[in-house]
Design a protein around this nucleic acid. Structure first.
Lengths: 146, 146
DNA sequence: CGGGCATTGATGCAGCTGCATCGACCGGCT
DNA sequence: AGCCGGTCGATGCAGCTGCATCAATGCCCG
């Protein structure tokens, strides 16, 4: 029903490496976090998004879009964060359907502590492998894939 | 206990985009496969590895290393493929602990049919977004991250 | 040869994800 | 106001993943 154009070998190679490298590096970073006794990266990402938002508060829908997660996944992630005392849910005054998710002081503290380990992992697994202008170029090329 | 060097902003950007772009593109490709009525990409990868191996046969351990999967994950993936009649297990003559996983004709056929859809997805989501020399450069940069 | 340790692959259990669906609420239209 | 299609978020269920562990076999070394 659609075009069925064939990709160039270069496109296939780039794609294959993208998936492979991301899988390997993500696993390595997650391992470092876990080894330091921290929760998964998704928790960090959520806390970071919230910590950057005004009042440390976001609607679940915004969190969802920021993290590229499906709706139900966000819902349950917030469940777990709330369970852990890292965020608090409140009803949304503007919209009776919605709610507001606010990061707690404990959440901010965890996010900050995780960053030390996370930053070190990024440096170890990414930073040391390429010189700075290659990193810039890589970021730029990746940016154009979205 | 360890170095704690801080990554450059360029490294952080490259890392963030790597994860983001891979997540988004992988989801898009998986969606295309599912929309065409095919099983997940992991099945394709496994079938491809097997189809390339001599006699279409690999030890689970080799498959594991080729696909960067944990051992138990491979074990269960092979379960599902076997269930679907796409591979067959046989005891390994050289090593009583091991086994041999062989792709069946049905497995080869599915791998070939999936490639049409998969290739179109790669072209749509990757190939059209960058000119060929940028794709080459991207592949090269990613290659140096491993 | 025999004991001890490493390797291969399977599996019970708990937690997570995807899917479908649901209930609650919004907003526009008549 | 009353209805209706659309949006927001939760949830039951099935399937998948990670973790720990196990049984079976291989391999080395005394």
């Amino acid at each position: 029903m659609a075009a069925r154009k064939k990709p160039s070998p270069e496109a296939v190679t780039a794609w294959a490496r993208l998936v492979r490298v991301e899988t390997a590096l993500l696993a390595a970073v997650e391992r470092d976090l876990k080894a330091a006794g921290f929760p998964p990266l998704a928790w960090y990402d959520a806390l970071l998004e919230l910590s950057r938002a005004p009042d440390g508060t976001l609607r679940p829908l915004d969190l969802e879009k920021a993290m590229l997660l499906p709706q139900y996944s966000t819902s349950r992630l917030v469940d777990r964060l709330e369970q852990a005392g890292l965020v608090a849910r409140a009803p949304c005054p503007d919209d009776g359907r919605g709610q507001l998710v606010a990061i707690t002081p404990a959440g901010r503290a965890l996010q900050r502590r995780m960053w030390d380990t996370y930053a070190a992992a990024i440096e170890r697994h990414v930073g040391v492998k390429l010189p700075q202008d290659d990193l810039t170029k890589l970021g730029e090329l990746l940016g154009r894939l979205l």
